[in-house]
Design a protein around this nucleic acid. Structure first.
Length: 655
RNA sequence: GCCCGGGUAGCUCAGUGGCAGAGCAGCGCACUCGUAAUGCGCAGGUCGUGGGUUCAAAUCCCACCUCGGGCUCCA
């Protein structure tokens, strides 16, 4: 009688199989359907190939494609197949890395003779990949020593570099997906004449794949370092089923439909005239209304929260940014200097903080007036590299809802706590309600101040963040040159995250500018400075709201809140009366006269995403009512008295 | 800044060496209508900019500007 082993399944049951049985044998024993869906085995400490023998007594779980880890696995294997296809089409290509990423995968290549992928190549590669999938090639794992591995990949310099890094125990997290084996060995996966350095696991064979699409080609630096060779990266997406792939492509279309750049043009909100320059927007009248309402609400809330309003110019002599350190640490992001009389250099400001500091320093300060909170909608200019400008979310001229809080060290913790609460409350008022926090620490080699100060500041931020009870993610080295920061990341209606508010703690600038206050002890003390912007920039926040709401802004923010549509020309005077009545309540209302059929005007109003279309005809003129066609409603509502409508609208506008 | 792909009418796009096109939007006239496109007509383009090749360039070549997707960076 052959020896047997038993394994425990997630439901608590156990299975007994002949010794030497593999994950695939187990799946087959459970059911043919599972055997077909199985991709890998979770043997307790990580995923392994189905072809591996089972360990007696282990608790195991079969991984299928309909889980996050299963999808990551098949994406990784699809990347592998793509590399195989590229190598068939471009013999001699060098392979770098090919991990699974959110929704898909990529692989980085260096083509022989410095060749570049072109868009048309994607089709050829995809066709080759489908051929490989059709060949149902099994993935076979083998382990080799470091030296064997180096010899094996002698003609693959990037793979060799990865192996050397493993040998030198300097493997970064990024390499972890590429190498396997324990310490002294690396693993290689082979299928049909192709072999790749890879930790694995992989799906059993290439025919488990197939629901993929190559998306685009891009450049990417080897190891993300712009001083190292630029590789050719191909991005693809891959899913466990045709339906899942199609659903993903549909989500991409949905995101495109919400794109603020598209909505901005369609709804006549803003534009980027080429004549002005890259990354510099103009807001049109309708966008101007939205912006004004956003800003007015913000001002009111800041006033209520104890902020004082200051104003500062857009340009300054160089001295100011020399003292602040910006010219040492930030100059590459600043527009070049304006030279005047060969005597003074002037700069457009990239940040508002030094100006607020000068306001603080304009006279002696007492501890009695701290904390002092200075707020400004301050327009700043940053010379962003040409490849990074993007709609309203990454521009070269922007207005920050910027404030600087000057306080004592003792007040610091309390200020940070109340500030975080204020930020989140305000963002919720604009309709965002799903957040997490990110703590950015000292950037190595690009900062000022002592380790002790950075440590204190970072801990103060961490404490305040933890008290808020939100998820906290660490962003190592992501702080500003003068201090660590917390940023509030918001998830929008379709789950994308955006960096919104930033809160930075700063011990450096008060020192550089020699800021002081006189304490109760009649001695001079150094205040602490907190930099914070809640929208981040008004432009970016505008873009985020537009995408979050897919252009259908809530009533209080909508550029036009209602449009009155007279059925016939002779209902025009009544339509104007209705509009005038609503305007008395402060509503933004217009009238579109009956030059076209009602259906056409309703359609136009819908496309403009107007919250309310108000139709008035014979019945309404007679009864003093309107027909209410609300955005998002199934059917129009007839015969609503005008005063009742006015009351409804007022109730819907919170401010 | 680097890699790939674009730029033709206000918008979406067709046009790959031989007269610059369509739909929508705009304007005019007619239609006066109860909830997602009334009809007819008119007007609208130095084909991103500048060079070059050619008898002839939207089309081929070069440079630049600009937009999109990435890398790096970031509010």
């Amino acid at each position: 009688m052959p020896a047997e082993i038993s394994v425990r399944l997630p439901d608590g049951s156990t299975r007994t199989l002949p010794e030497g049985s593999t994950g695939l044998d187990l799946a087959s024993a459970i059911g043919a359907r599972l055997a077909k869906a199985a991709l890998a085995l979770d043997g307790g400490d990580g995923l392994v190939d189905l072809a591996r023998p089972l360990q007696d007594g282990a608790t195991v779980r079969i991984v299928t494609g309909d889980s996050d880890e299963g999808r990551a696995l098949l994406r990784h294997s699809t990347a592998h197949v793509m590399a195989q296809a590229v190598l068939r089409l471009w013999p001699g290509a060098h392979l770098a890395i090919g991990p699974a990423v959110q929704d898909g995968f990529y692989y980085d290549f260096e083509l022989p003779g410095g060749a570049r992928f072109r868009d048309e190549d994607l089709e050829r590669i995809e066709a080759e990949m489908r051929a490989i999938v059709g060949e149902a090639q099994p993935f076979e794992r083998e382990e080799r020593s470091i030296d064997d591995g180096l010899a094996f990949f002698a003609d693959q310099p990037f793979k060799a570099e990865i192996i050397e890094a493993v040998r030198d125990r300097a493997a970064s997290a990024e390499d972890a997906g590429e190498v396997g084996g324990e310490g002294a060995a690396v693993s290689i996966y082979r299928n049909a004449g192709f072999a790749d350095l890879c930790r694995g696991p992989h799906v059993p064979a290439t025919d488990r794949l197939g629901h993929f699409k190559l998306m685009r080609v891009a450049g990417a630096y080897w190891r993300g370092d712009e001083h190292r060779p630029q590789l050719q990266r191909i991005y693809g997406t891959a899913w466990e089923s045709k339906a899942a792939l199609e659903a993903h492509l549909h989500r991409l279309e949905e995101a495109e439909r919400r794109d603020h750049r598209r909505l901005g043009a369609e709804l006549d909100l803003f534009s980027f005239p080429e004549e002005i320059g890259s990354g510099l927007a103009v807001f049109h009248p309708k966008g101007g209304v939205v912006r004004r309402v956003m800003e007015e609400h913000s001002r009111r809330r800041h006033e209520a929260a104890g902020y004082e309003f200051v104003y500062s110019p857009h340009i300054t002599k160089a001295d100011l940014f020399e003292v602040s350190g910006h010219l040492d640490w930030y100059e590459e992001s600043m527009f070049p200097a304006m030279e005047l009389d060969g005597e003074h250099r002037y700069f457009l400001k990239p940040m508002n903080c030094p100006f607020h500091i000068l306001v603080y320093r304009s006279r002696p300060r007492s501890y009695r007036e701290l904390p002092q909170r200075m707020f400004e909608l301050g327009t700043v200019y940053r010379y962003e590299k040409s490849g990074v400008v993007h709609g309203l979310t990454r521009v070269r001229g922007m207005t920050q809802d910027d404030a600087h809080i000057f306080c004592t060290r003792e007040q610091m913790d309390g200020e940070l706590r109340s500030l975080l609460g204020f930020v989140l409350e305000l963002l919720r008022e604009y309709g965002l309600d799903d957040f997490y926090l990110e703590l950015s620490t000292r950037p190595p080699g690009k900062s000022v101040g002592s380790d002790e100060e950075w440590g204190v500041a970072t801990e103060a931020l961490r404490t305040a963040a933890l008290e808020e009870g939100l998820q906290l993610v660490l962003d190592e080295g992501g702080g500003a040159f003068y201090g660590p920061k917390i940023s509030v990341q918001a998830r929008d209606a379709i789950g994308r995250t955006w960096q919104m508010s930033t809160i930075q703690l700063d011990f450096q600038l008060p020192q550089r500018f020699g800021l002081t206050y006189v304490g109760a002890d009649n001695e001079r003390h150094r205040p602490v400075m907190i930099h914070r912007a809640l929208f981040g920039s008004v432009e970016r926040f505008f873009a985020v709201l537009l995408e979050h709401y897919a252009g259908a802004l809530p009533l209080w923010l909508a550029p036009m809140q209602a449009r009155v549509l007279p059925v016939r020309d002779d209902h025009g005077p009544y339509a104007e009366e209705v509009a005038a009545r609503l305007r008395r309540d402060g509503r933004r209302v217009d009238v579109e006269h009956a030059a076209e059929p009602l259906g056409a005007r309703v359609r136009r109003g819908r496309l403009e995403k107007l919250p309310y279309l108000l139709v008035v005809g014979d019945d309404d003129v007679a009864a003093g009512t309107v027909g209410v066609n609300a955005r998002g409603a199934d059917a129009p509502e007839r015969g609503v008295p005008v005063d009742e409508l006015a009351a409804r609208l007022s109730a819907e506008v919170p401010v």
